[in-house]
């Protein structure tokens, strides 16, 4: 039996130092809603757990002077929901983050953990990708930025290098006429895992889409940025042809598996259906913004 040590550093430098020194035997604990479950199931037995919730930057939600947001990697879904402004600016990201687990789990679960758990079905990731979020990571060699979609490498794997810790998400300022949304297909109404998840962010000027991003989850080894779907929407007035082209792009991007949660045929079809439904919500929100 090996013991597990627990460390709760106050600074990021300390956390990075301990994480790098543990050389792979350590795991980062944000909310723990994946890590602790995996440990209890006997899938993981880390020698060291580094709790990052005591580090101020990790739990801060900052509205930048330019209107953008910086969200600490360990911010809980519940804390994000209580922020007076975040949900007004990024309703789609918020609804996606708030879909992680039950109400109780929301008190702990974080977008940083959801991203680093690297499940293709993580709910917050398609919405973050659609939002164009950029993450800051810090490791033994300092800080760097990368787009959210560059973080997942495959189921359970990220492109973070050894010793690197995800610090925060930066979401850009929103031009007027912007809106975002996230929808997922689950067989139940809650307490479930996405069979397909779609995040859409749109900016509409004078009835024409001027900017769009589409994130697609649970249909490939990683959550995807579907540029072709966005391109089909940009410049359009969201007419049926544009929507169908974007849906087709989503279907084409799918590389799903047949498993207990859904078939290839089903997931592929649903990706297109959800794209259209998510665009409709994002567009409605853009019209109000």
């Amino acid at each position: 039996m090996t013991d597990t040590r627990y460390l709760a550093p106050q600074t990021l430098d300390e956390a990075v130092g301990a994480f790098a020194a543990a050389a792979g035997a350590a795991r980062i604990l944000a909310g723990g809603t994946d890590l602790l479950v995996q440990m209890r199931a006997g899938l993981l037995r880390p020698g060291l757990i580094i709790d990052i919730k005591k580090i101020e930057e990790m739990t801060a939600i900052v509205e930048e002077p330019d209107g953008g947001f910086r969200v600490g990697a360990a911010v809980s879904g519940a804390a994000l929901a209580e922020h007076p402004r975040f949900g007004q600016v990024w309703p789609g990201v918020l609804e996606a983050v708030n879909l992680i687990g039950s109400t109780q789990v929301q008190g702990r679960a974080s977008p940083g953990g959801n991203l680093c758990n690297a499940s293709p079905a993580g709910d917050s990731v398609p919405a973050m990708i659609a939002a164009g979020a950029v993450v800051t990571v810090q490791g033994p060699n300092g800080r760097r930025q990368m787009p959210v979609e560059a973080v997942p490498a495959g189921p359970g794997r990220t492109n973070l290098t050894p010793g690197e810790i995800l610090v925060s998400f930066a979401l850009p300022a929103r031009p007027k006429g912007s809106g975002d949304a996230y929808l997922r297909m689950i067989p139940r109404t809650e307490m479930d895992i996405a069979v397909v998840g779609v995040g859409v962010s749109l900016t509409i000027q004078g009835g024409t889409v001027t900017a769009a991003r589409v994130g697609l989850g649970a249909v490939a080894p990683t959550v995807l940025l579907v540029a072709d779907a966005a391109d089909a929407l940009i410049g359009s007035k969201l007419d049926d042809a544009a929507l169908e082209a974007a849906a087709a792009a989503c279907r084409a991007a799918c590389r799903p598996i047949d498993d207990k949660r859904g078939t290839i045929v089903y997931r592929t079809k649903v990706a297109g259906v959800l794209l259209k439904r998510t665009v409709a919500i994002a567009a409605e929100r853009a019209g109000r913004a």
Binding site: P187, R188, T189, E190, M191, D192, I193, K260
Partner: peptide, 28 residues
């Protein structure tokens, strides 16, 4: 509508959890 045992190719139950053995929840 939703509950069933799913077996894998080796004759093992593949959905031995409340996540993947889908009983309705209240909101359903």
């Amino acid at each position: 509508l939703s509950e069933e045992y799913i077996y894998d190719k080796k004759g093992r139950v593949d959905n031995a959890s409340f996540l993947d053995y889908r009983m309705p929840v209240c909101s359903d």
